[in-house]
Design a protein around this nucleic acid. Structure first.
Lengths: 251, 251
DNA sequence: CGGCGTGTTGAGTTCAATCAAGGCTGGTGG
DNA sequence: CCACCAGCCTTGATTGAACTCAACACGCCG
């Protein structure tokens, strides 16, 4: 049970903003003005250590923009089981939608140390509908739609795919997302997730994830070392997991 | 493969509008003016026979309000398997959101004969942001949020629940939705779904759905006859499927 | 009547869960 | 420095849940 307060650290330095900017601009080129706006936000930079919940006290759910690190949306069931709905990567936002979404009500947990900026002010600025911020607003809306599209893919994985297909599909999706954010190459990604986390996302047991990954390694589909994954046979992985090229075609 | 054109029938009579109105008003009381607006829409009433796709040609996805009958959102995988994302009941809408959502891009299939109204004009009217239509707009937004909340529940079912729990959970959810719409009592609902449809929604095989339902019948948890389901032990079903009372608390 | 869609049931198989043990690594404290 | 522990990963053995294949029953309809 992670219920301690979020540790806070304000800082004028902006080490992480590049990642976030890259992600946003890869979706939709921003104006200099918007870029500067995002950069100014980094005054509100804060940090959550790994394993800790954002908004531990439940109700707050203040909007945030992730600069570095991984987080996930999850629900804990009555019997203690966990289901992960999706992952939040650098450049992703939470709670920024002007129209509240159920996704924004889910618990968010930091999987690694996460640097983020409080985006309360950003939300207020965007709510003004200033046309100068159109591109930024649209970029963030696209990002949210993308998250929802990933949720649909997640349903398909859970409902209709084998353990190996689920893993392959998720790896490809994460690779695509990281690559958009300029955070990985086409065949190699940093995956700071424990196998237990993968299991809770993919509806599998920890043990079976370990076995399946081992099997994929032996089949030379992937290679893993100290948190880095190499996709050795992307064509096969795509075919085996029914991963479409156009799945994420959003405008 | 269902690709024939949607059969169209215009009619001035409005037999189905009551259900839709009831559903909308149960979420948020409408003004007389809004009620009249919805009723006037019934000029655009049309019908799709069971098994047919809405927008068969792909790209259209015109907005609609379902008056009677059941439909589902689904995706067909490369190997022919089907995954159902959720069900659309009388009073539910599709494609009405002003901000396009991935959910609205999914294929929608009529599971029974479906009466609906084309809501293109309604969407245009709502886009005007006329404050007199505030309640209606909010009711529809709530309905969309509800759909998204159901999608999250769906993920939990698929990821972490047994066959029996999945069925129990889904039955309770459908009961709640139908009851809101004034279309069923607290313990008895009309379920016009084949077991194959249930299987494709719950990520199970047709055969296993049949077995599990039979088992639930033998355990006196439910009773079934000719498309009607009776929940004989709601308390047990709730507990066994971890179905929360407050799961659908949306404002 | 025969065919089709749907539901049921049995037998055998497969995939993934569970239980259990051990290994590796990194950190902590004696 | 080393002993110890905790967290994470791996592997084997066993169990169990759900799948597949197959046959058959039922109602409906042309």
């Amino acid at each position: 049970m992670v219920t301690r307060a979020v540790s806070v650290r304000r800082s004028a330095s902006t080490p992480g903003d590049l990642a976030a900017l890259r992600n946003l601009t890869s979706i939709n080129r921003l104006s200099d003005e918007e870029r500067a706006l995002v950069r100014r936000l980094c005054v509100f930079q804060e940090v959550v250590p790994a394993g800790q919940a954002f908004d531990p006290d439940g109700r707050a759910a203040s909007p945030r923009l992730i600069l570095s690190g991984w987080a996930c949306r999850q629900r804990i069931l009555a019997d203690g089981q966990r289901q992960i709905f999706g992952f939040l990567l650098p450049g992703d936002s939470m709670g920024l939608s002007l129209h509240p979404r159920p996704l924004d009500e889910t618990t968010v947990i930091a999987l690694t140390r996460v640097e983020y900026v409080d985006a309360l002010m950003l939300r207020e600025i965007l709510a003004l509908q200033d046309p100068r911020h159109d591109r930024l607003r649209r970029a963030l809306a696209t990002s949210r739609r993308y998250e929802e599209a990933c949720l649909l893919n997640h349903v398909v994985r859970l409902g209709r795919q084998s353990a190996q297909a689920r893993l392959a599909h998720l790896l490809l999706e994460l690779r695509d997302r990281l690559q958009r954010a300029g955070l990985c190459t086409s065949d190699r990604l940093h995956l700071p997730l424990t196998q237990e986390t993968l299991a809770d996302a993919l509806g599998l047991s920890l043990v079976h994830v370990s076995r399946t990954l081992g099997q994929m390694r032996r089949q030379r589909l992937i290679a893993m070392q100290s948190g880095w994954v190499t996709l050795l046979d992307e064509a096969y992985l795509r075919a085996a997991s029914d991963y479409g090229v156009d799945e994420h075609a959003l405008h």
